[in-house]
Design a protein around this nucleic acid. Structure first.
Lengths: 224, 224
DNA sequence: CAGTGGTCTAGACCACGTG
DNA sequence: ACGTGGTCTAGACCACTGC
């Protein structure tokens, strides 16, 4: 399927507002419609999405304005930080047919079921400082086989969110001894563990992950 | 302004799917349009919102289906838990013209500015068990004067989110001594503090809050 | 008064999944 | 082949703001 017009227009507007200051007014919907050669409803669909994502805001009967950059949505910041300074160091990768019961429960599986699970564990660093350790457990037949050998694609969770939903839990705890050294955190220090699951539309979980965050280095923040 | 048609239709559909099971198919957009007497685009707008909020999901070229209840969006669950069992106990309420610098910084204020800040602190209980302590700091001239004496309305943050945005930080820490007794938590136990700010469209913060969550009682979870 | 965003209509064509 | 969701059009009226 070729790219819809409203996506092209959305990207076009996104590009144009990069040069504008926060709270600058942009062209009216009718002008954009004329200039970009699309109906007003199509332009509106583009604007709707940009408003939803925090790029723009509207004042009724007045106009559409550029939003402050800090207000753009980042509700998946925990994992898909688009930060060029991040380095990922794989600690463990395997495909298993069994798994600890604690993990199976999270994926609504029992050891009677037939399944195989991809497990990946990685350390995330920023400017050589350890940020977090992430553990992923993914049910294999939900995963695109082509991605299994490309960790960056495999572990980019945003792709799975498009067609499903995610829950995240925030749990204060102590660092697991096995990760204390990697994270350079003392055993007694309280750290933040984030436990997440990704569900398909039917409500079946197919990815479970945990991340242990170094409180000295990483602030977990979301914008909604 | 009277209620738009798409809102009425949205509520209607919302009511109708309460009686359906997860993954049941609903009527097609064209049928809904005919039955409810609105154009297909209007029906679609209602459905779009219900999909966005996790009530429904669509399969291209196939149909629209009822989503699993657990997948409905709850990204503000931290505060506006619509849970009937919750009890709120006000600990402190005042309106001040000065405030600790740490708080002022969060609201982008200095003590040179002219302002007054509403401070409210409350304990949240569920079945008599302490869940969390919440501290709110709100710049007064952003707040509807009528609400100031109605704490439930004043502290319902969802109203402020409609026309602005919120950031939340998750910080593992130890319980502040002054709240240890209220929360029935020992001083050494790691607890989860959530720090949030609400911004207007211009990017100016006008509410700052903190919540200290009892890890034994309360699980902080969001669904996106 | 002119212009804005918000809503709404009655069509249309497309690609695709399922029977 | 038929029905579905996804996209798109070219209008329209409304309530409201700011000049």
């Amino acid at each position: 399927m070729r790219k819809p017009i409203y996506v092209r227009i959305k990207q076009q507007i996104q590009k144009e507002i990069e040069n504008k200051k926060a709270n600058d007014v942009i062209e009216s919907e009718r002008l954009l419609s004329k200039r970009l050669g699309a109906s007003r409803m199509t332009v509106r669909k583009s604007l709707d999405e940009l408003v939803e994502e925090g790029y723009l805001y509207r004042k009724e009967n007045v106009g559409t304005f550029v939003a402050d950059r800090s207000l753009r949505k980042r509700n998946t910041s925990l994992l898909s930080d688009n930060d060029a300074n991040l380095e990922y160091r794989l600690i463990n990768f395997d495909v298993k047919y069994g798994m600890k019961n604690k993990i199976l429960e999270k994926l609504n599986l029992t050891d009677q079921d037939s399944f195989s699970i991809i497990r990946a564990i990685r350390l995330v660093l920023k400017n050589d400082k350890p940020q977090q350790v992430e553990e992923f457990y993914m049910i294999r037949n939900y995963i695109n086989e082509k991605h299994i050998n490309q960790f960056d694609k495999l572990l980019d969770l945003s792709q799975y969110l498009k067609k499903g939903r995610m829950t995240q839990r925030f749990i204060p705890t102590k660092v697991p001894p096995k990760y204390a050294a990697s994270l350079k955190v003392t055993m007694d220090e309280p750290i933040l563990m984030i436990e997440g699951r990704i569900f398909d539309n039917q409500g079946t979980p197919f990815i479970y992950y945990r991340s242990y965050n170094n409180p000295r280095e990483k602030t977990v923040e979301i914008t909604i």
